[in-house]
Nucleic acid binder design. Structure first.
Length: 549
RNA sequence: GCGCCAGUAGCUCAAUCGGAUAGAGCAACAGCCUUCUAAGCUGUGGGUUGUGGGUUCGAUUCCCGCCUGGCGCACCA
């Protein structure tokens, strides 16, 4: 019904425009910032002023005079400023919203405008050659909530993780572990030049010695490294899965690069492009005509030495996603893959998939501050701040909320000292506290012999704080819908903070449980609605909603 | 040199396809607990939205120049 108000207003305005014979404008309705301007406002008179070449205010007056509407729902229509038309909804409307929230409960906020879409969200996809770092934590939180949001508006979604378990990098891991393993037996085996120096490599070697003893010492370096590549990968991937699960991110698909190579999907890509005449040979290499699809230059698919590029593999992978029935692909990439976006979009378009069905978001760097100093992170050097470490220090709720508060396309500073404080400086507590307070009131009411009853008199909810709360609650479906449309999870954290604040104000000004039994019931139902919406919003973020704090 | 992103209160960030007096938190200051959770509430101070132009009824938002910062510009992955 909350969206019904908007819909109703649109209908009223549209028929008014028709009556006057004015062009049917794209009607913009928004909620004015200032309380005094009503509940909704439209700028339609101002935009019409351009088309009709008349002053906006007289147009607004004419339009308002032509409007036909239900005066119990719409209690006031006024014209302000340069030509805004402001609408005020009656109390009865807000009371109906309350009934709607209580009725829909867990599904309040959901819609189905994206039904029919089958969306693949691929995020994190970190190399299995090292532990997850804090940029992965940022990507994991955001990707997870993007998927939740699209699910909430009716889309079918899958969370996917691409495991880079092939190629030179994983071999380097095998050699690195081999060298560390041999060192444990006092044997000096040269450390590979492009090897991994992190402490975790030594841990891997130690765990292998523990499990298999000196069983690998007698092997040749090549044989041992190959074996270790396999064993180390399995352990690294298991560790990543575990960390992500603790972070409450659960993937539907773990997709192996190895399996892709076996499927020969890359050969299929080459064939399709050749058939469409969109590839050519130059300097002994095979090129894709990326420049015809908006990229600054053409890109190599197969190197002079006959080896496929990473680019070709990635095209094959995304083709495979489409083949698995997804209508939309949405990737979160690291900043180092920036230049790849145009060529990938081009390649997928070349293969016949519509532009706009493949989108990429760049998750920018996270600068970790410790004692005011930026901690340098490098997977190679081993100075990484592990995601696991971050979770242990600040907790899952705080970490997720912290990342979700910020837009993803700008670098952020993560002050570890501040986040560790777990004090009121951390905004997640403010929101969770509101939820705990609500639960506490409901429990108290039961203890006082006033549990939530079947019926209540909504009309008793009429003071400023109660109406403000009802209005804020009614915004929730729009917030979810908009956040999903633009894929901006931070809109939810902003809303949550506003709702918590509105509730705290109400709580401070009015007692819920009083001698007045009817008023108590009305307020209990209001508070129950707050609990529902806080819970629904926190669930979308996968942040816990504690009943006690 | 080219491309992308950003520049808003002391700090971290918002601002609903171009809308009304640019808003929150933290920090600072002053108040509020015999009463359902004070991890809360109330109030005060804090701004030439990097800068110079342009577009128009109206610009933090759109266009152009400049300044500053981040990232990216491989037949690496």
């Amino acid at each position: 019904m909350s969206t019904h108000a908007e819909q109703y207003l649109r209908e009223v305005i549209t028929s008014g425009l028709q009556k006057l014979g004015w062009p049917a404008e794209n009607i913009i309705l928004n909620r004015p910032r200032q309380e005094g301007f009503g509940d909704f406002a439209t700028t339609v008179a101002m935009t019409l002023a351009k088309v009709l070449k008349k002053a906006p205010r007289p147009l607004a007056e004419q339009l308002v005079a032509a409007l036909e509407y239900d005066r119990t729902l719409l209690t006031e229509i006024s014209i302000d400023g340069p030509g805004y038309i402001n609408f005020r909804l009656g109390e009865g409307y807000w009371h109906r919203v309350l009934a709607e929230i209580l009725r829909e409960a867990e599904s309040f906020g959901r819609s189905n405008w994206a039904s029919g879409r089958k969306i693949n969200f691929e995020f994190v996809s970190a190399n299995p050659t090292g532990p997850l770092n804090i940029v992965s934590a940022r990507a994991a939180a955001i990707g997870d909530v993007m998927a939740n949001l699209m699910q909430a508006v009716g889309a079918e979604v899958a969370r996917e993780y691409y495991i880079n378990d092939a190629g030179q990098r994983v071999k380097a891991l095998g050699y690195s572990v081999s060298s560390r393993y041999m060192a444990l037996f006092g044997k000096d085996e040269p450390f590979p030049e492009d090897g991994y120096h992190g402490e975790y490599v030594k841990d891997l070697a130690a765990s292998l010695r523990e499990e298999f003893g000196d069983g690998f010492v007698a092997m040749s370096v090549t044989e041992r490294s190959a074996k270790f590549t396999e064993l180390a990968l399995a352990r690294m991937i298991a560790a990543q899965k575990k960390t992500l699960a603790e972070y409450r991110v659960h993937y539907d698909i773990w997709f192996s690069e190895q399996s892709l190579l076996e499927s020969k999907r890359d050969e299929e890509v080459l064939q399709l492009l050749a058939e469409k005449n969109l590839s050519y040979t130059k300097d002994g290499a095979l090129w894709f005509v990326a420049s015809q699809f908006g990229d600054s230059e053409d890109r190599v698919l197969v190197k002079r030495d006959g080896e496929p590029t990473y680019f070709l593999g990635d095209i094959a992978y995304h083709l495979d996603k489409y083949r698995r029935g997804f209508t939309h692909l949405h990737d979160l990439w690291g900043p180092d893959h920036h230049a790849h976006i145009m060529r990938m979009k081009g390649a997928l378009e070349a293969l016949g998939y519509k532009r706009g069905t493949f989108e990429v978001e760049i998750i920018q760097q996270v600068n970790l501050l410790r004692g005011g100093e930026v901690v340098k992170m490098s997977k190679r050097s081993g100075n990484i701040i592990e995601m696991r470490e971050l979770l242990e220090e600040v907790g899952v709720d705080a970490a997720r909320y912290f990342f979700l508060m910020r837009k993803l396309d700008t670098p952020m500073d993560f002050d570890i000292d501040l986040a560790k404080k777990q004090s009121d400086e951390n905004p997640v507590f403010y929101v969770q506290y509101a939820h705990a307070r609500v639960c506490s009131v409901l429990v108290y009411a039961e203890e006082q012999g006033a549990p939530l009853a079947e019926t209540y008199e909504a009309a008793l909810l009429a003071n400023a704080e109660e109406l403000a709360l009802l209005k804020k609650l009614s915004e929730f479906p729009e917030v979810v819908s908009k956040a999903a449309e633009v894929l901006e999870p931070h809109r939810l954290t902003i809303y949550l903070h506003e709702l918590a604040s509105t509730f705290h104000q109400f709580y401070h000004h009015h007692r819920v449980v009083t001698e007045d039994k009817t008023l108590t019931q009305a307020r209990l139902h209001l508070v129950e609605a707050v609990r529902i919406v806080l819970r629904n919003a926190l669930r979308l973020l996968n942040v816990s909603a504690p009943e006690k704090m």
